[in-house]
Amino acid sequence: MVKNNTLRTAPDKSGHFGPYGGRYVAETLMPLILAVEEAWNGAKTDQGFWDEFEGYARDYIGRPSPLYYADATTKHFTNGDKGAKIYLKRDELNHTGAHKINHCMGQILLARRMGKTRIIAETGAGQHGVATATVCALFDLPCTIFMGAKDMERQAPNVFRMKLLGAEVRTVKSGSASLKDAMNAALRDWVSNVHDTYYLIGTVAGPHPFPEMVRDFQSVIGKEVREQMMQREGRLPDTLIASIGGGSNAMGLFHPFLDDESVSLIGVEAGGLGVDTDQHAASLAGGKPGILHGMQSYFLQNEDG
């Protein structure tokens, strides 16, 4: 049930979540982004599209992923009559070893529906790159992955996997040579190849409709948790905890629970040396609103942006 005044109905027609989101992209890309939106609006209301997605989710990704009762962890954190029963949602057991495959499968089905013949993506640690390369191999589409030079060094096994799957991995050396710059490079490639290319964005980021789309594909996580908890415990969980980098797994887990007041949602960002230092990755806790990568959101930035 969707309540009135619910956060679950966002974004609005122009792709805003309150002041956030939107479409801050070069005009060259706007017609294409409007075409992605039109295709997505058609797909999301088409039962045939979701049947196809669910078929691949079951037979290729291996969904539903198990909900595991972590007995030892539960005991470890139990102190007298204080503590909680801890369950782990095992999305790392998906094909390719992460939740990223959920939105990759959904988006590549959309790209095929749009008749796109080339896929590009950015990747940080490489999980999204591996998942993208995998769905591209499945559907025999050429695939280019942009990855920061520093990340390629740190995550060499994933670079190897992507190449093994037939993807071209392009080294991004500009800026800080990490995920942010990989996304810049992918956007530049997209501007240069608007006619045949689909940009398969790897998190709840980018211009509308990407955040909504990635959220809706990832929501399979939260929907399963809801069903599995009802089966196991006969009630909803008290708390959901998710790690937040870009936010795709957290949004996927949280979104089906946004209207449940009894369920508290906790996102955990990387603290580094502490949010009061300049060596952390907590953009929500330590950042401020800004505009980057096609959207208004929270970013870590200096006073000049």
């Binding site: 479409r23 801050y24 070069a26 005009e27 060259t28 890309l29 706007m30």
Partner: peptide
């Protein structure tokens, strides 16, 4: 360059009030 008309209402209003033109980009995809 990253401000399509869909997002430009606030800047447009402020700029025009101060006599500054908003110059729009038109591209081969337009």
């Amino acid at each position: 360059v990253d401000l399509p008309p869909e997002e430009s209402a606030d800047l447009q209003k402020a700029a025009n009030a101060h006599g500054i033109d908003i110059i729009r980009l038109i591209t081969p995809t337009t």
